Computed example of a mutant assay.
Amino acid sequence: MMVAYSFQKRFAPQILAGTKRQTIRLPRKRHARPGEKLQLFTGMRTRHCMKIIPDPFCTVVLPISIRLSARSIVEVEIGTWSSGRWTQVADLDKFARQDGFSDIADMSGFWARAHGDVEYFNGALICWYPDESAEATA
Score class of each variant (00 low, 15 high):
A12P: 06
G18N: 05
M50Q: 15
T87R: 15
L26Y: 12
A114E: 09
R67L: 09
D99N: 14
L38A: 08
K51A: 13
I126C: 04
L92R: 04
R113V: 07
G123S: 05
K20N: 04
F110N: 01
D93L: 11
M44W: 15
A96Y: 08
N122T: 12
L62A: 03
H31R: 01
T46E: 06
L16V: 12
F121G: 01
R28L: 12
R113G: 02
Q22V: 03
R25W: 10
Q98M: 12
T59W: 04
K29C: 08
E77C: 11
K94Q: 14
E135D: 12
L38P: 03
R25D: 09
D55R: 08
F57S: 00
E75P: 00
G84V: 13
R25L: 08
W86Q: 07
P13K: 11
W128R: 07
R10T: 07
S82Y: 15
Y129L: 08
A112P: 00
M107V: 11
D99A: 10
K51Y: 06
A134S: 13
S65N: 13
P54R: 05
G109N: 13
M107T: 04
H115P: 00
M1K: 05
Q8F: 04
R67N: 02
S82C: 08
I104D: 02
L38T: 00
I64S: 03
K37L: 15
D93I: 08
A17K: 13
K51D: 00
Q39L: 07
F101L: 03
R28W: 14
R47S: 10
P56N: 05
R33K: 14
N122L: 08
V89L: 11
P63L: 07
S102Y: 11
D106P: 06
F95V: 02
E132G: 01
A124I: 05
Y129E: 09
Q14P: 01
R45T: 05
T137I: 11
E135L: 15
Y120L: 08
R33E: 13
T23N: 08
P34C: 03
W111Y: 15
P56H: 05
T87L: 14
K20T: 12
A124S: 09
P56D: 09
D93K: 09
A4K: 14
S108H: 11
Q14I: 02
L16K: 14
P27W: 15
T19N: 11
D93E: 04
C58K: 07
A96E: 03
K9L: 13
R47D: 07
A90W: 07
L26E: 12
Q8V: 01
F121V: 01
G84I: 12
L68P: 01
I66T: 02
F41C: 09
F121S: 01
P56S: 10
M107E: 04
Q14V: 01
I104E: 06
F11N: 02
V118E: 01
Q39V: 10
E132D: 11
D106K: 01
E75F: 03
G43P: 11
T23M: 04
R97V: 13
T23Q: 10
K51F: 06
P63Y: 14
R10I: 07
M50R: 15
G84H: 09
L26G: 03
H48W: 14
G35D: 14
F7K: 03
W81E: 09
Q8R: 03
C58F: 13
P34A: 06
C58Y: 12
A4I: 04
I64H: 06
S133H: 14
R30W: 11
H115R: 13
T19D: 10
